[in-house]
Amino acid sequence: MTAYLLRRLAISLGVFTVMSVLVFLGVEALPGDACTALLGRSATATKLAQCRGANGLNASVSHRLIDWASGLLRGDLGFSIKRGKSVVDIVLPRLRNSLALATVASLMAFPLAIVVGVWSARRKGTRVARAVDTVSLVLMTMPEFVTASVLWLLFAVWLPLLPGVTMVSSNASLLEILPNIWLPAITLALVVFAHVMRSMRASFLVTEERPFVEAARARGIAERVVVRRHILPAALPAPINVIAVTAAWLLTGTFVVEVVFNFPGLGRIAVDAISDRDTALILALTLFGLVVFIASSFVSDAVTRALDPRMRAQVAS
């Protein structure tokens, strides 16, 4: 297993390196640069040249790539010209907020999704199970801004229990942020819950049809044990993969929800960075997304393997 993890890690690093170069070149290939975006309409040839000179944009692409990469290795993500701050200072507090939001949403959604998925699979065909199925389908298909708006109406307007819009800055302490997390977190949790729950349910039902389950039942093993020891370990890999993908999404794809609730996370700043042509910031955020997706697939592969002795054996050989 260790050998496998090390190999997998090496590959992840390779993917990261190649992808970060591609991302850098991709941003480079776009028309315009940080200076044209910063100066906008007031841009004249002289001002542009001045700006580019001041910010080192005149150097060759390869030169700047090496510059940027060596900075990256030292933990320096560059400087945002538009915002006049180092990228690390912009990203870190928001990263913390996003992590808090994703953690709260995950804790609400994932355990519950697994439990409800199994529960509804075991009661397949009953009215309750069908109701759960329908509701989850609705949650899955409803755009997040609709879910968000409904929740906002319910808990911020009609029942003013929670703040509807975040009024604290991105640098506020976690305690100050916490009350503002609930509504966006619930919105995200509902979407994510539906995906994971349905995958758990489907996988459980397929696994339940397999001969070893019938054989276990025929041996007179208690149903509780059949579910926990025979079905679940074989059924979990599918929802675990969904969890990995959705967890990554919780950290990188939450722009809509952040806008609705004015939550100071990474999603908003990413969109802003793109419209500002804030190269350094775009690169940092893209790389962050890359890390998140690589890490989540790494973790889910490792867990899936740990559950399956065939994979374990293969890795050991």
């Binding site: 001969p211 074989a234 559950l307 399956d308």
Partner: peptide, 27 residues
Amino acid sequence: DDDRRQLLGSTVAMVPQSVAMSLTPHL
């Protein structure tokens, strides 16, 4: 169900065929 389970294995035992993977793969 519980009474039935009591009989399974002790009074009557079913031996399934092996080809179809009747042993739980992860146990």
